[in-house]
Write a protein that binds this DNA or RNA. Structure first.
Lengths: 137, 137
DNA sequence: ATAGGACCTAAAGTTGACTTTAGGTCAATA
DNA sequence: TATTGACCTAAAGTCAACTTTAGGTCCTAT
């Protein structure tokens, strides 16, 4: 089954120019064109797009994603590099999750705080005294 | 207790120019200077820097953080805006955590995959056939 | 007293990831 | 047949968040 660029943009919820930009950067190495020079996407390209999504979320830069794809292309000689890369991505993802969880604690506290303040119409009230500890902002 | 910009840079693990940049953007509204025009940081400024850290992690832009600080300055008339803002931040943080957890699954799978491939010296081996499902990259 | 180090400013430069623009091809439909 | 819509390219523009540069002040220690 083959897909047009607009179908892929819809499917992955990214813009058409972004897909072309990724292609230009070499992030879609298996992407084919038809006789009219029009891009025709298949499952193999979706695999690449999914991997781009996954790695980007962990904060990886496009040029490093490209390098990883190139390592895959080079074959077994780059297995160690790829292993190390994923260990590093795992570390980054875990660190980000931890940082977000920590931030979320304060944010949830602030939600409570402002819920109450809204009901009272003011932050200047005895019932907010003890709940307003972490930051006075 | 007062601190210099280099002490604060160390404490928060950000660069001195970044602190000056935040100050310029109005993200450190309580920051004082001594007679020599040198910034002197205190706990109140740390509260702002901590809040910047927390909100930035959830993907909030500096200009929106600034607007939040301004809302705080305006007082009780902005309580609803601030409440809604933190509800939105909570949503964003949770979504990011979920996206990262999902990515982490694939990354952990890839760690396993490449650990084995490294031991075997190749990705072209029967014991990797069944483990290599999600993406062929 | 002068040299060094820590601070200051304004302004320009950088980086990454896109987005926009301008101009062109091509196939199908009114 | 002509025009519309979906695609194409190359190149320029944008945006956020910094960083770098160039030049200056001020205090302290040799």
């Amino acid at each position: 089954m083959e897909y047009t660029i607009s179908e892929v943009a819809d499917k992955f919820n990214i813009s058409i120019p972004t897909i072309r930009y990724y292609d230009k950067l070499g992030l879609l190495p298996l992407l084919k064109r038809n006789k009219g020079n029009v891009r025709t996407f298949s499952e193999a390209d979706f695999d690449f797009l999914r991997m781009i999504e996954i790695l980007k979320i962990t904060g990886m830069e496009l040029k490093d994603i490209r390098r990883y794809f190139y390592w895959c292309y080079l074959g077994n000689s780059t297995l160690k590099k790829r292993y190390d890369m994923f260990l590093e991505r795992k570390k980054q993802a875990e660190e980000q999750i931890n940082a977000l969880k920590k931030s979320l604690q304060m944010i949830e506290y602030k939600c409570e705080y402002y819920k109450l303040a809204n009901e009272l119409g003011t932050t200047d009230h005895p019932s907010l005294e003890d709940i307003c500890k972490p930051v006075e902002i």
